[in-house]
Amino acid sequence: MDRYHQGSLAVQERVGVRELAEHVGRSIGPGIRDVAAAFLALQPHLVVGAADGAGRLWASLLTGAPGFARATGPDRIAVRGGLPDGDPLAGALAADGTRVGTIALDPRTRRRMRLNGTLAVTPGGFAVAAEEVFSNCPKYLQKRQPLSLAADGPGVVRRSSALTPDQERAVRAADTFFVATTAGAGGADASHRGGMPGFVEVLSPTGLRWPDYPGNAMFLTLGNLAVDDRAGLLFPDWEGGGLLQLSGRARTEFGADGGRSVRFRVESVVESLHPGRLLWSAPEYSPANPAVPANPAVLPGGAADRPHRGRTTR
């Protein structure tokens, strides 16, 4: 199988990790191993990335009792339920043939699993025929413990085309977000980004930037952005139950010292409260998180990446 498209290959070549990426990419395949199936069945959340009817990329959060998302075959998962009314991906997850990227992340164990494929509507939910299944290392994952279920909320509470001052503060305080990208006909992908609070810089009500920390050398996210600049971001409020979803355009900036950052332009904002979502404890930060520069203007990417130079890259 072709593990990478031209976008990922180009980034791998530019960074100088092509051989390593080929080795790491052998872990990508359509099969769901028993250990992955067992992991998925324990998760109360599933992040899904896809395009809405207008072509905008979004990342959304599905919630349910453990077992609501489970493997039903060697290359297929089933998900019970759907998204709350007003979620920008509610329509896409109710349409056969939607290309989706999913990620199940367990803050208790710092483990994650990604599965990308094609959606089929089923009674009471949907299924995904897997095309790519793989796991990532625990880098930059904050550890949390589950506490309680969120009370019923009003669903979507605000839509706009730019961040409010409160939303800007939430982004600056974030230690975790998820990013949905696509390679067009190559399908969708959902990935995780983590770091110390402040690692996502707010440049303006419609502009964000974050460093691209070293990861697994595959460059699936940056590779997708190299061929299609659409992206969707999801910022969860772990302790309060709220969600901040952003859709827009992103591009990678390469620094002269070899560092990288991603600049994101906000086009659409949805803020919501998800009823029934699990609330989590304050984080135990990953020991892999780089320190956040005192002066973010030193970015793109370089200062935050310097302690990790020579490690594998994502």
Rank of each mutant, 00 (worst) to 15 (best):
Asp34Ile: 08
Pro44His: 10
Val17Glu: 00
Gly97Thr: 00
Gly125Arg: 03
Ala129Glu: 09
Gly29Arg: 10
Ser60Met: 04
Val133Pro: 12
Phe126Cys: 06
Arg99Gln: 12
Arg56Gln: 08
Val121Leu: 10
Leu20Trp: 14
Ala54Met: 07
Arg114Trp: 09
Gly31Ala: 12
Gly55Cys: 05
Pro44Val: 03
Ala65Thr: 15
Leu83Gly: 13
Gly73Phe: 12
Leu83Ala: 10
Ala41Tyr: 11
Thr98Gly: 10
Arg108Phe: 07
Asp96Val: 09
Pro74Val: 12
Leu46Lys: 08
Gly86Leu: 05
Ser60Phe: 06
Gly31Lys: 10
Met113Trp: 15
Val128Gly: 10
Leu89Arg: 12
Ala41Asp: 08
Gly29Leu: 01
Gly91Gln: 13
Thr102Glu: 01
Ala130Gln: 04
Val35Arg: 13
Leu119Glu: 02
Asp85Phe: 15
Ser60Cys: 11
Gly25Cys: 04
Val121Tyr: 09
Leu42Cys: 04
Ile77Glu: 06
Glu132Met: 12
Leu93Ala: 13
Thr102His: 01
Val48Gly: 01
Gln43Trp: 08
Val79Ala: 11
Ser135Trp: 10
Leu46Pro: 00
Thr63Val: 15
Arg70Asn: 11
Asp52Cys: 14
Asn116Trp: 06
Phe39Cys: 05
Ala65Ser: 14
Asn116Pro: 02
Pro74Thr: 09
Gln43Phe: 07
Gly101Asp: 00
Leu57Tyr: 05
Gly49Ala: 11
Arg111Ser: 13
Ala129His: 11
Arg26Asp: 05
Pro88Cys: 02
Ser27Pro: 01
Glu132Thr: 06
Ile103Glu: 02
Gly29Ser: 13
Asn136Pro: 05
Phe39His: 11
Arg56Ile: 00
Pro44Thr: 06
Gly82Lys: 08
His45Lys: 04
Ala51Asp: 05
Asn116Ser: 14
Arg76Ile: 02
Ser27Arg: 14
Thr98Met: 04
Gly64Ser: 09
Leu119Val: 05
Ile77Ser: 06
Thr72Gln: 08
Ala129Gly: 14
Ala90Val: 14
Phe39Asn: 09
Leu83His: 12
Gly81Ile: 06
Asp52Leu: 07
Ala59Gly: 14
Pro107Gly: 10
Pro88Asn: 02
Ala38Lys: 07
Ala69Arg: 04
Arg99Ser: 11
Arg114Leu: 01
Gly81Gln: 05
Val100Arg: 07
Arg114Gln: 02
Val35Cys: 02
Asp75Arg: 15
Asp106Tyr: 08
Gly125Cys: 07
Ala130Thr: 04
Ala54Trp: 04
Phe134Ala: 03
Leu83Gln: 12
